[in-house]
């Protein structure tokens, strides 16, 4: 284990040297500040904006879950995660389309519309799943009551 750990750290160090060489050789020095800004912004955006929003959202959702059903909450959370991922992937398409495509065979879909339809589909499936779970639970409760 110790040898493997040392080997991995040494290998990583060597790969970082290659990264530095590739950066120096390939990217003009005046663009390095821009790269650094993007790297730092990515971390700040995630750690200080995105993750806290997820925390607040989760704590609000959990109160609903505690009052209704944890399984129903899980379905809603999965739906939100899938929708958020699709939104992230669709965003460059929406933005690039607003700026104008280079030629008619790039950006071939109406991305904003497709994203809206996907969210609509997710909402319908989620609602159906939550209702189904609720009905099943009421049946199970009714069965115990009888």
């Amino acid at each position: 284990m110790r040898a493997a750990r040392i080997a991995l750290v040494v290998l990583g160090g060597l790969l970082l040297v290659v990264a530095a060489v590739a950066l120096v050789a390939g990217v003009p020095a005046r663009q390095w500040a821009g790269i650094l800004l993007w790297l730092a912004s990515a971390v700040v955006l995630h750690d200080a904006v995105f993750a806290p929003l997820v925390l607040v959202g989760t704590r609000i959702l959990r109160r609903f879950g505690a009052r209704t059903s944890w399984a129903g909450l899980a379905v809603v959370q999965v739906a939100l995660v899938v929708g958020a991922a699709l939104t992230l992937v669709a965003f460059p398409g929406i933005r690039a389309q607003a700026l104008g495509a280079r030629n008619p065979s790039v950006l071939v879909f109406p991305y904003a519309l497709h994203l809206a339809l996907l969210w609509g589909g997710i909402a319908v499936v989620t609602a159906a799943a939550v209702l189904l779970l609720g009905a099943r639970r009421r049946r199970a409760d009714g069965g115990r009551g009888a």
């Binding site: 060597l14 990217v27 933005r95």
Partner: peptide, 29 residues
């Protein structure tokens, strides 16, 4: 992939250098 370049640096060369940084930092991690 959407041919949208909102950053102030070369794409291909930066993507290449960052790839090495990722595998390097990953090995250490």
């Amino acid at each position: 992939t959407f041919q949208w370049y909102p950053w102030p640096f070369r794409f291909r060369e930066t993507h290449f250098a960052l790839a090495w940084a990722i595998v390097g930092a990953l090995a250490i991690h």
